[in-house]
Amino acid sequence: MTEVSSMRAVHGIDIGGSKIELVGYAIEPDGALVERHRRRVATPREDFAAFQQAIAELVNEADATLGLQAPVGLGLPGIVDAASGRQLSSNVPALNGRPVAQSLRERLQRPVVVGNDCQCFALSEAQGGAADGLPSMFGAILGTGAAGGYCVDGRLIRGLNGIAGEWGHWSLPASLLARHGVPLIDCPCGLRGCLERYVSGTGLSNLHRHFGGEGSEAVAIAARAAAGDALARQVLDIHVDLLAQAFATLVMTIDPHAIVLGGGLSKLGHLYEQLPAAMARHLFQGLAMPAILPPHFGDAGGARGAALLALQSHP
């Protein structure tokens, strides 16, 4: 206990719709995070008091393991109202409209920093991950939806409203959709033609269904294409072009040195092979394409990124 308690520590918590995972880290003198504790419990989805209690029990247990009271970073789905601190959208209904960070600070009596789970993914890959040491990077989640985060010199850039990296709700050009015979789709966010409706894993399945397929999962569509299925190949080609246009817009907007893919589609090898050339077709000549990289930490990066966010806010 004495050896551990002489160190600084931080807890990172990844909040999901079905599980909460806490990882307790000791902080080495050089700033490296060393995992000392990990625990996962089911997410109380409907009861905010039960949610708070679950977090408190996890944090107290981690404190006991590490031998000191540590600050907490939480990665949450959805976004937070920068003015009120209330959660605006989440796949955990109990959190909607709640001042999550403030409530947990009062309950835990310590610094608590809340960030978007996709931003936490980006931060983890920027510090010690696939984009470690690069001047800038964008972490692009391609899972059920599409979101991400932007880091410069290993630090997360959150923006005025804390939503920097919400690229999934940019709109694809109607002319590009028309070129491929893809309809303009309404998005639950209230906009139309949002990227995530087309380029996410869900979007790829919907494209497959639109062109007469069964709407299979992304990995199955890729396997069919590799086996010679013409429809699957057509759908993957359209998907790559739509995604390439989105990434080309990222290049023209923030010009990252690398784009690290996350989520289920990060497992599709053809994206790393085809995207650079496909992106170049949407940009003027002479530009260098950012490296398109697979994630180093993958799904395990959520809690780590949350811990890093807490340290960025409370060095």
Rank of each mutant, 00 (worst) to 15 (best):
Y198A: 04
E61A: 15
I292M: 01
A220D: 15
A50Y: 06
A70D: 10
R107Y: 00
G269K: 11
L311W: 01
A26W: 06
E214P: 00
R45G: 04
E57L: 10
Q285E: 13
A222I: 03
C118I: 07
G67F: 05
Y25L: 09
L250V: 10
R179I: 09
A307P: 04
Y25N: 02
S89N: 13
V92N: 05
P71F: 02
G212S: 10
G168F: 05
R39W: 01
G264T: 03
L156N: 04
Y272W: 07
S171G: 11
A232P: 00
S171K: 09
P29Q: 09
A131F: 09
Q234L: 14
A174P: 02
G264D: 10
G212F: 06
P294K: 10
E217W: 02
A42Y: 08
R39T: 12
V59A: 14
V182Q: 06
T253E: 06
G129T: 13
A49E: 11
I55Y: 09
H296I: 02
L268G: 00
D229N: 13
G269T: 09
G269P: 05
G67Y: 05
G298C: 03
N206I: 00
A310N: 02
P173C: 04
L283Q: 12
L68D: 02
G201Y: 01
H169N: 12
Q312A: 11
A244V: 11
A310T: 01
A280V: 07
R105G: 07
L142P: 07
I259L: 11
L250N: 06
L160C: 08
G286S: 11
P111C: 00
R38G: 12
V72Q: 07
R209L: 14
A56E: 14
G286N: 06
G24Y: 05
Q245V: 11
A70T: 06
G263E: 05
L88H: 04
A122P: 00
S124T: 06
I13A: 03
S6Q: 15
A246K: 01
A307G: 06
V72R: 10
G193V: 06
H210I: 07
H257G: 14
A248R: 01
G12N: 13
Q274V: 12
K267P: 01
A248K: 06
V59H: 03
G128N: 08
H282G: 12
G143R: 01
P290H: 07
L104E: 13
M252T: 15
M1K: 08
E21I: 14
D186P: 00
E21V: 15
R158M: 07
G17A: 10
P294L: 07
G215H: 09
P77Q: 03
P71I: 04
R155F: 04
L95Q: 12
M7T: 15
V10R: 02
A147F: 03
G264E: 08
A122G: 07
G24H: 02
G269R: 07
S313F: 01
G73P: 04
A248L: 04
A42T: 14
P44T: 01
V219A: 15
R209H: 14
A280R: 13
C151P: 08
H314D: 15
